[in-house]
C-alpha cells in the first residue's frame, strides 16, 4: 500500500517581529520590510506526519506552497527534512488572496499533482491565523476533512481513525482516503534537518507553477477571487489608568486593596 501525500506549507513572518509590522493607515497595505520569515510552525508537524506515514506505507510526499518567489525557502527546507518533491504556486495573479482564493489555487495545484490520498495542513498559520485554508481546500477538492488532529491512525493505509481536539475533550472520527487532515502541534515532535538531508536537496524535483500551468478561472484567484476585502486598520489602544504604586510591599498592597475595596471588587 503506497500513499500519495501532499502537505501544504506556508512561509510566514517570524512572530517575534510582529510588533515591527506596520500598516499604511490610508491604504491598509502591510509593510513587512526587514521582517524575517519562517516556516509556519505547525506546518513542521504536518510535514513530520507526512514523512511518518510515508515511512510506514511507502509512497511519495509533495510539499506545496502558494506564495512569492522567496517562499521557495520553506519548500527547500521541507525537501531537506525528507519530502520528495515540491511545488511552488507563484504568480502575480495569485497575490492578495483571501483564504478562499488561496484554497482555490492550492486545490488546483493538488489536482494537478493528481491521485492524492492524503492532504495534510497545519491547523492555523501564525499570521493570517484564520484556520480556514485546510477545510476550504478539502471542500474545493470535494474530499472530506478533519481538523485539529492530535492522532492519525491508518491501520491499512485506507481507513483512517483520527482523534481531534475539541474544547474540553476530543472527537473520534472515521473516514477513508482521500482525506484532508489539519494537524495540531501536539500530534508529533518534528524531526530536525540533517547534513545528509541538505545534500539531497539538489537531486530533488522542485517545480514552480504559475497561472498558465494549473487549471484555474481567472475570476477565482488573487484579489479578484477574494470575497473579503481588507478595509481600515488601526493600532489597538487600551485605555487603562496605569496607576503604578510606590512604597514598601505592605504599603503598595494596602493602597491596592483600598482602591479595590472602593470599587467593591474585594
Amino acid at each position: 500500500m503506497s500513499l500519495n501525500i501532499v502537505v501544504c506549507i506556508k512561509q510566514v513572518p517570524n512572530p517575534d517581529y510582529f510588533s515591527k509590522i506596520t500598516l499604511d493607515p490610508e491604504t491598509g497595505a502591510i509593510s513587512r520590510k526587514n521582517i524575517p520569515t519562517i516556516l509556519n510552525p505547525v506546518d513542521e508537524n504536518a510535514i513530520e506526519e507526512a514523512l511518518r506515514l510515508r515511512e510506514r506505507f511507502s509512497g511519495k510526499v509533495t510539499a506545496i506552497s502558494m506564495g512569492p518567489p522567496q517562499a521557495k525557502e520553506v519548500l527547500d527546507w521541507a525537501l531537506t527534512l525528507g519530502v520528495d518533491e515540491s511545488v511552488l504556486l507563484c504568480d502575480r495573479a495569485f497575490a492578495a488572496a483571501d483564504s478562499l482564493a488561496t484554497a482555490y489555487v492550492l486545490a488546483a495545484g493538488i489536482r494537478k499533482i493528481g491521485n492524492v490520498d492524503i492532504v495534510l495542513c497545519g491547523n492555523e498559520s501564525v499570521d493570517g491565523a484564520t484556520e480556514q485554508v485546510g477545510p476550504q481546500v478539502a471542500e474545493l477538492l470535494d474530499i472530506p476533512h478533519i481538523c485539529n488532529a492530535t492522532d492519525i491512525s491508518l491501520p491499512n493505509g485506507r481507513q483512517a481513525v483520527v482523534r481531534r481536539n475539541i474544547e474540553y475533550g476530543h472527537l473520534t472520527i472515521e473516514g477513508c482516503v482521500p482525506l484532508l487532515i489539519t494537524v495540531s502541534r501536539e500530534i508529533n515532535q518534528p524531526r530536525t534537518a540533517t547534513a545528509e538531508g541538505i545534500l539531497t536537496l539538489m537531486d530533488k524535483v522542485s517545480r514552480t507553477w504559475g497561472v498558465k500551468d494549473i487549471e484555474v478561472d481567472n475570476d477565482a484567484i488573487g484579489l479578484a477571487g477574494s470575497p473579503t476585502r481588507v478595509g481600515k486598520s488601526y493600532e489597538q489602544k487600551l485605555e487603562r489608568e496605569r496607576m503604578i504604586l510606590t512604597g514598601s510591599v505592605d504599603e503598595m498592597v494596602a493602597a491596592a486593596i483600598k482602591r479595590l475595596k472602593a470599587e467593591a471588587l474585594v
Binding site: 513572518p13 510582529f18 510588533s19 499570521d127 481588507v230 478595509g231 488601526y234 493600532e235 489597538q236
Partner: peptide
Amino acid sequence: WGGGMIVN
C-alpha cells in the same frame, strides 16, 4: 499579528 493591530 498577535493582537497589536486591528484590521477591518
